[in-house]
Amino acid sequence: MFLQQLINGISVGGIYALIATGYALIYSLLGFSNWAHGEVAMFGAYIALTLVTRLSSPFLGALAFGILAAGVASVLNEKIAYKHIRDKGSPTMFLMIAAMGISTTYQNGAMVVFGPKFQMFPSMFDVTTIQLGSVSIGILDVISLITSAIALILLELLVNKSKVGLGIRTVASNSYTASLMGININRYFSLVFLIAGLLAGSAGVLLGLKYSVYPTMGNVGLKAFIASVLGGLGSVRGAIIGAIIIGVLETFVSGYLNSGLRDLFTFGLLILILLIKPSGLMGVDVEDKA
C-alpha cells in the first residue's frame, strides 16, 4: 500500500514537474510568474482530444500535434503580450497581470468553444496493471512516469550541457549584459517559451489521458507553480524536486487522510515554506525576491 502510493505520487509529481520546470525557466529569464502556463497545458490537451475524437486522426500523431500546439501557443502568448510590455519598459508586475488576463481568456475561450463538460480520450490502453510483487501499477502511470522522466532528463541535458543551454543560462543570469554581448535575447525568450510550452503540452496530454479534459484543468498549473516555489523560483532542478514532493504529499493525504484536505495541505505547505525559507529549497538569489 505504502509503496504503491509512493509510486502513484511520483507519477503525479512527474506530471507536475513538466509544468513546474516551465515556470522555473520562464521565471529565471523574465523574473515573473507566468500564470497562463497551466492553460497552455489545457490547450494542448484539447487540441489532441479534438484531433482524436472529431477528426479521428492517428492517436500518437494527435498527441504529438497537441504538444506542438501548446508550444506554439506559449510562444504566441509571449509575442503578443509579454514582448510588448517588456518593450515598453513596464514593471514586471504588469507581465503577471497580463498572464492572469491570458489565463482567464484561455479558460473561458475553452468554455465557449469546447463547452464546460469533462471529456475523455477514447481508451487506448487497457486498464491493465503491472504486478511487481505486492505492488500493482496502472499502465498509464508507468507511461506518464517514463515520459516525464525522459522529458526532464532531456531538459536537464539541454540546459546544462548544450550550447543553446549555455545561452539560456547566460540570458537568465543577466539579459541586459547578454544583449550587450551580442546575444539575440528575444530569440532566447521565444525559445524558452517554446520549450516550456512543449513540456506543458506533454503534461496536459498526460493528464488528459489519465483523468479527463476540461476548461479549468489548467488550474493544475497552480500546483506546479507551488512546486516551483517550493523548489525555489527560477531553479529547474528545484522545480522537479518540489513537484515530486507535492505529488507524493497529495497522494498520501488523499490516501491516508481525506481527499478533501489535499489542497489544504498543499497550500499550507506553500505558506509554511514561504515563511521559513522564502527562497525555496534551491532558490537562486534571495536578495530582491524576499
Partner: peptide, 25 residues
Amino acid sequence: LGLKGDYFLITTLGFGECVRVLFEY
C-alpha cells in the same frame, strides 16, 4: 508582508484557497 511581489501574492492565493477548502471541510 515581509515577502515581496510574487511571493506575497502566492501566500494570499494560498490563504484564499485554504479558506475555501476549510469552509468546505
